[in-house]
Amino acid sequence: MRAYFMVAALVGSVSAAFLLAANLGTGNALSAQDFVDLQQGSTAHAGFRRAHAKGFCVAGDFISSGALAPFSSAAVLQAGRYPFIGRFSIAGNNPLAPDLKAPVRSFAITLLPETAQQWRIAMNTPPVLAVGTPEKFYLQLQAIQNNSVPQFFAEHPESQAFVKWRSTYQASSSFASERYHSINAFYLQKAAGQQQAVKWAAVPMLTSTISSELDETDADALQKEFFARLNAGMVSFDWQFTLGTDADDENNATVLWPDSNVQISAGTLQIHQATEQLDGNCNALNFDPLVLPRGVAPTADPILRARAAAYAESHRRRAREVLVQSVVGDQHE
């Protein structure tokens, strides 16, 4: 019954509804429930995320260089070693989907997970989004389901940077060799009135060598490759921050910032453990990008808030499903 009360509290903590965008021409507001309904599709996989349902847990330490301490008072950006819990995943709502068929891969972490200064971060392989508002993103999801993506992109010229990235992107043979992006911008804050817009990326630092040959018939090919790679040595990423300038719009995630912008390495993300997601402590986490420590703040990017709201709704649903499963299990004991 202890599990019952723990999950019940979890459900209560994320049970509110979130409005994401204004009228879509129907006279009704678009809600987080609408987004998650669309991502979920006709069949819900009980207890799993509605997006990025398939993944596995990792754990490690962030070795902070302290190079960003002049820009932020965040604890983990001061020089030192800080633990994190993470998760690698593929796009889609099917927890049994084949790894190699997914168009997007993701890496999420929670730094200092046991403290009030935890920082939840969700990164993806695309460096930009195709559209910059929640209502347009909803229409993009509909276009994907309706197989009308080319027409959608043609009608939304702001998608140019994303389309260019997609046309040149080649998926790697390992989660460990992908580059993962914040997509949205955030502010680093040192003192009142002082802030610096930034984006970041986890850049692979491959130190172990194993065969890159993957069994394309194995639905879990990428997960198995990562576990084997980790057995051969630690997996690391350089956490690189790009500083925005006055010429950059931090509230528009469809535009790439120039390579000429200042880049600073915050330190190294070192992964030393991987676990099946149902057995790992990342499974219950909601990697809400608006869970931020002191010294880091969100921009006004409307997509950023939409992401957080949809994550919360997905988390609420699967927490409720786990609760029901727990109650049924208790009744059969």
Rank of each mutant, 00 (worst) to 15 (best):
R307A: 14
E135V: 07
H332Q: 10
S174L: 01
T299N: 13
A17W: 08
V11W: 04
F287S: 00
R320V: 07
H45P: 01
V149K: 03
I90K: 09
V327D: 00
S167M: 08
V235E: 01
A97K: 05
S159C: 13
V58N: 03
P293D: 05
E276I: 00
A312K: 13
R50N: 13
T217C: 00
T43W: 14
L323T: 02
A219G: 03
N146Q: 15
A21M: 01
K164E: 14
K190Q: 14
R166M: 10
S314R: 05
F48K: 06
A69D: 14
L68K: 00
A185T: 09
L30E: 04
A21C: 08
S167D: 12
D61A: 08
N251C: 12
P157G: 08
A74I: 06
E213M: 11
A102D: 09
T275K: 09
A232F: 03
A8M: 06
S173K: 01
A8Y: 11
Q118D: 05
K136S: 14
R105S: 12
K101I: 15
N23I: 06
Q39M: 10
N283F: 15
R2M: 13
Q117G: 11
P113S: 03
N184Y: 07
R87K: 15
T110S: 13
N252P: 07
K136P: 02
S172Y: 02
Q196P: 05
A143K: 11
S236G: 02
C57D: 15
S89G: 02
R179L: 11
Y4T: 11
F287N: 00
Q39F: 14
F71R: 09
I121C: 12
R294N: 13
N28M: 10
D246Y: 08
S177Q: 08
A309I: 12
A79D: 07
Y169W: 10
D34Q: 05
P70F: 07
E135P: 06
V104N: 13
G66W: 05
V262S: 12
G55L: 02
A67M: 12
L323R: 03
G27I: 09
P302Y: 07
Q145T: 09
S72R: 11
R229Q: 09
V291T: 06
S173W: 10
R120W: 05
P70T: 09
G27D: 00
V7A: 13
T43I: 15
V149W: 00
V104E: 08
